[in-house]
């Protein structure tokens, strides 16, 4: 089976590493690395697993972002992707999920001939989980989100879609879009050979014009949603320190305090 698989990936700041300056109430961004979004790493891994089983499979990674996102795409190539495309253009800047999905779906149409599109469930910087389904809608193909188990047999794909209290088993035909969660697999590491091969490959950079989108479809002005205001949440402030000679004394002081305030 020779499959054409497209994986949508995003370069994100590692939000785990970000802290708020408690005095100035601003973000401390210095030294925070840009990484391949976690859920997207699972999306790529599932595509690469298909390639392990069916070596004829072609895996194309697709991203939208500034030129620096090439670093992340090199990482994807080093892990085993065949082809990498970056949509990068100032005209795409400020796109919300609706506009982003216009750009990505237009690029996917240009790539053409795909069987499966994998995307991470959501990106850790925006946490919207919207772009995957919106790409599927614009391509008029079925979607399954929260995929935690994947099997393919001929034209039919069988997946487990995670629910809050279990999962559902779903059958879907190619072509389709699947969004992946971390329970699906464990992403592989790059190897030396892969890194060497990746440096020999070219990353294609496409502009808005290349994918045939205009300012009514992409960018800040085209986006239906806008940021009205943004701010850092106010922290509660340091509370009362409970201290004592022994753990027992500390426990007693705390419980007495809670009891006095009728909290317990």
């Amino acid at each position: 089976m020779a499959l054409n698989v497209i994986v949508c990936v995003k370069q994100v700041p590692d939000t785990n590493e970000i802290k708020i300056d408690p005095v100035k109430n601003t973000l401390i961004r210095e030294g925070v690395a840009s990484i391949l979004n976690h859920d997207d790493a699972n999306a790529l891994e599932e595509a690469l697993k298909l390639k392990d089983i069916y070596p004829e499979t072609k895996v194309t990674v697709l991203s939208m972002g500034p030129p620096q996102a090439k670093e992340m795409l090199i990482e994807c190539l080093a892990k085993g992707a065949d082809d990498a495309i970056l949509l990068s253009d100032r005209a795409l800047g400020g796109s919300d999920t609706w506009a982003t999905s216009n750009a990505l779906s237009s690029a996917i149409k240009k790539i053409g001939n795909y069987d499966i599109i994998f995307a991470g469930r959501q990106a850790i910087d925006g946490d919207t989980a919207q772009v995957g389904p919106q790409i599927a809608e614009k391509l008029d193909i079925p979607q399954v989100t929260y995929v935690r188990n994947f099997k393919i047999s001929g034209e039919t794909i069988t997946v487990h879609r995670a629910l809050e209290d279990g999962y559902e088993t779903i059958e879907v035909k190619k072509p389709c879009l699947l969004t992946t969660i971390k329970e699906l697999n464990k992403p592989r590491y790059m190897n030396i050979r892969g890194i060497f091969d990746a440096t020999q490959k070219e990353i294609k950079v496409w502009s808005a014009k290349d994918i045939g989108v205009t300012d009514t479809e992409v960018g800040l002005d085209a986006s239906p949603t806008n940021v009205f205001r943004s701010f850092t949440p106010a922290l509660k402030g340091k509370g009362k320190l409970i201290d004592g000679e022994t753990s027992n004394e500390i426990a007693r002081i705390l419980l007495l305090e809670l009891k006095h305030k009728q909290l317990i």
Partner: peptide, 12 residues
């Protein structure tokens, strides 16, 4: 947004 580091108010 941004892993909870920032709050954003969105309009449509």
């Amino acid at each position: 947004a941004f892993g909870g580091n920032l709050m954003a108010t969105i309009i449509c």
